[in-house]
Amino acid sequence: MSSWPKALVAAVAAFGCAWAAAQGGGFPGIGRAATPKELAAWDIDVRPDFKGLPPGSGSVERGQEVWEAKCASCHGVFGESGEVFNPLVGGTTKADVERGRVARLTDPGYPGRTSMMKLSQVSSLWDYIHRAMPWNNPKSLSADEVYATTAYLLHLGEVLPADFVLSDRNIAEVQKRLPNRDGMTTKHGLWPGKELGGTGKPDVQGSSCMKDCSAEPRLASFLPDFARDAHGNLAEQNRAVGAQRGADTRRAGDPPAPAPAPAATKADTTEAAASLALLGKHNCTACHAVDGKLVGPALRDVAKKHAGRPDAVDYLAGKIRSGGSGTWGAIPMPAQTLPEADARAIARWLAAGAPQR
């Protein structure tokens, strides 16, 4: 078996050379080479050694402004909210900053886990905010805004002082202050190869005998005859959309199931469908559901609150564009930048009761 790894490496190398040659030659009439600008647009990752980090800077104070405008609606004003996502901040101490390992990660009396407790690389935090936030408009933050937001989060975690300005020039020093900077290890079998610090051995040892195996069980479900109609005909209790269809559980001699209600006409559904499409287009559904509370209130509850108000359309369109907080709780709604016509269309739909068809 000693020759097997060498043969595998040789085969992989040969395949790689063939692939590279094919890519270099290209395929006539298919595609084109990516331009440097296109490559740069995709090449945005930031490595733990901070290669790929763009120049820029941002203060904790500026980060608070960005946070309250674009982040607090999901994560809370202080990063503590667990209503939508896990809390980002909490569970770390100044002693952890000095030690480099979060003590509460091994404390059975503190089962909570926040992002700051687990974070071992500040580059991971910067990179994730840059490529994925805010949730309803990823990649919309400038590099300076990402620096500022990162600085604000680290300030909330007692890593940076309130007057700190984070930049590409001092971020490596900030890495040395992360509470869990020494919490990541490669000393396990999941990490590939001893040359990268791994053990080279799998965490679990075992072998497959593949003999004396039991017969593969056959699983099935059925409804006993005595219970077939215990809760009515299942075929009549499923939604008319999707692939799920309930079995016809009527007893012999029962009348046939009623025909489904006729679908709404195109005229009935056009305005509601257009409004629902606008909700998706402008990412309103990231924080609002029609019938249930998500981050913000259910849109149908908003409609009920303002039902019968003579100026409902003007009022709701203004609230959509200006944002606000306090009416439905402490989580603020940022100001929205959608066109006036779209805001009024959504407002008319809300004033009509938020119909779905």
Rank of each mutant, 00 (worst) to 15 (best):
A143S: 13
G31F: 12
R131D: 04
G90S: 09
L160R: 05
D127K: 11
H155V: 00
G63S: 03
K139H: 12
V102P: 02
N137S: 15
F78L: 15
S81L: 13
L154T: 02
L39A: 11
P134S: 08
Y128R: 12
S115R: 14
P48I: 01
S124K: 09
H130L: 09
S124I: 04
L53F: 06
V84A: 14
A33Q: 15
H75C: 07
T149L: 12
K51H: 10
D43N: 14
E65D: 11
S81R: 11
A33D: 14
Q23W: 13
M117P: 02
P54H: 06
K118W: 03
G109L: 09
A21W: 15
V46E: 05
T149Q: 07
L153Q: 12
T92V: 15
R101D: 06
K51D: 11
S81P: 02
E65G: 04
S73Y: 10
G25W: 11
A143W: 10
G157E: 01
G58V: 04
G76D: 09
P55W: 01
E98T: 09
V102H: 05
L53I: 03
I30C: 13
S123W: 04
A22S: 13
K51N: 10
A143H: 13
D43F: 03
V89F: 01
L88W: 03
T106E: 15
E83L: 15
M117C: 05
E38S: 09
S167V: 04
W135H: 13
D163W: 00
V84N: 11
L53R: 05
I129S: 03
S124V: 09
A34F: 10
T106K: 14
L125F: 07
Y152M: 02
V77A: 14
W135R: 13
E145C: 07
D107Y: 05
M133R: 13
P111D: 11
D163L: 01
G63I: 00
E65M: 08
L39E: 14
A72L: 06
I129H: 03
F50I: 01
L53E: 03
E145S: 12
L153M: 14
E61M: 09
D96P: 04
P55Y: 04
A41D: 11
V97L: 09
S124P: 02
R32K: 15
K94D: 13
F85I: 02
L153T: 06
Y152K: 02
L156D: 00
M133W: 07
D107Q: 08
S124L: 12
G31H: 12
E80D: 15
G26K: 11
K94N: 10
H155W: 01
Y147M: 04
H130K: 14
T93D: 08
P134R: 04
V159S: 03
H130T: 10
S59N: 05
H130A: 14
P111S: 14
G76N: 10
